[in-house]
Design a protein around this nucleic acid. Structure first.
Lengths: 207, 207
DNA sequence: TAGATTGTTAATCGATTAACAATC
DNA sequence: TAGATTGTTAATCGATTAACAATC
């Protein structure tokens, strides 16, 4: 929907910039420079400058960047609307841990639905949000605007849940199973698999 | 320690190959090809061939690769020893969820320690592993061979825990806090931050 | 003005893809 | 032998870094 396509590599860094700016903000720092940001997050300053120029273009020679302006420009890449709505499917250990995390609202993400297919879980609440029957998933998603679905069900059901989410209009998936999800290219999928992460670390420390 | 340096991009794909081979194995498929693997995990076949040639070099023209041989060659990039030992520091919701995950052993990772600084948690057990006092962390790490430490403590204590781990000889860190850890370049760090992941997905679906 | 800092252009580096020769 | 599949070399693409001109 945005006019300029943001390179994959830059997308990976935007959360770092946002984090850094949050920190500067809470320290009441109003103006910053590519050097300061680069040092803080451990990147090269030229790279930071190039990224920020692409995303914001509001740097001023000799002065640098206004922190709040930069935050606004970065935010624009993330969303058009007020909030990004997401749901969690699967309220086992991982799903529950995620649902209890209360930092979402500070970053304009809104957790608006929890689902499980286990009778003993349905009807319970996590931080005031009721766990709904997974059967209601597609209805819920079509009736509410859901941007992202988090999949935290057992591996075997992951593809089914994924298909249901996409059929109901969800455009992004965060997959906590180690299933390889088959999706159309217009859907954004990220995977978090602990064994894969440990494997990559193990390779790096073995070199 | 390995003689040939594996490119960063290839390291990211090794878990995919391992996953795919596990699946082929459980389907009793003994021989495979770059085409089959590529289709399964959604990569180009030339890329798969190049990666596998770098890592294994045991492909045979017209025949392909023996699944078990390929698995062995991939495993060699991951570890020299029998197992990769790791511990979890912080047994809150996330730490507990991770500790309960029982797939580690199937992939030659061994969870051998749990730590927390909360009196109400110390002494409890998760899947037969006792939660130890965080004060014992450095002693434990120096007395046992720990390859990787998972940090699942509150954000504020992350850097302190990280420093303790590294001082005690840990070479890899999996960081579940959104703290930006400051480490020496010889230490491998991977971060899992749910807000960052949601942010990247949100950017991609907003384009 | 001189210094600091941005933005841009060119050069380098690394990763992917294409073309094709080698071979069980 | 012909076909299938690997491994390699060259070409392309994308990302990073270096050099430097522009400017508040």
């Amino acid at each position: 929907m945005d006019f300029k396509k943001i390179p994959k590599a830059v997308i990976e860094r935007i959360p770092l910039y946002l984090n850094c700016l949050d920190k500067l903000n809470s320290n009441n720092i109003e103006t910053t420079s590519s050097k300061q940001i680069a040092d803080e997050i451990g990147l090269g300053e030229v790279q930071v400058r190039k990224d920020l120029n692409l995303i914001s273009g509001n740097g001023k020679p000799k002065i640098g960047y206004k922190v709040v302006d930069l935050q606004k420009d970065l935010q624009k890449t993330i969303r058009n609307s007020e909030k990004t709505n997401f749901i969690i499917v699967g309220c086992g250990k991982i799903g529950e841990a995620l649902a209890n995390y209360n930092e979402f609202v500070n970053h304009n993400f809104a957790l608006i639905g929890l689902f499980d297919n286990n009778k003993s879980k349905i009807g319970k609440r996590i931080l005031d949000l009721e766990i709904l029957d997974e059967k209601k998933l597609t209805t819920f998603c079509t009736q509410n605007h859901i941007d992202i679905g988090i999949i935290a069900v057992p591996c075997e059901s992951a593809q089914k849940v994924c298909d249901d989410l996409i059929t109901s209009g969800v455009k992004g998936i965060l997959n906590f199973t180690n299933a390889k999800l088959n999706v159309d290219t217009n859907i954004s999928v990220r995977n978090v698999d602990i064994v894969s992460l440990l494997t990559m670390i193990a390779i790096e420390i073995n070199e």
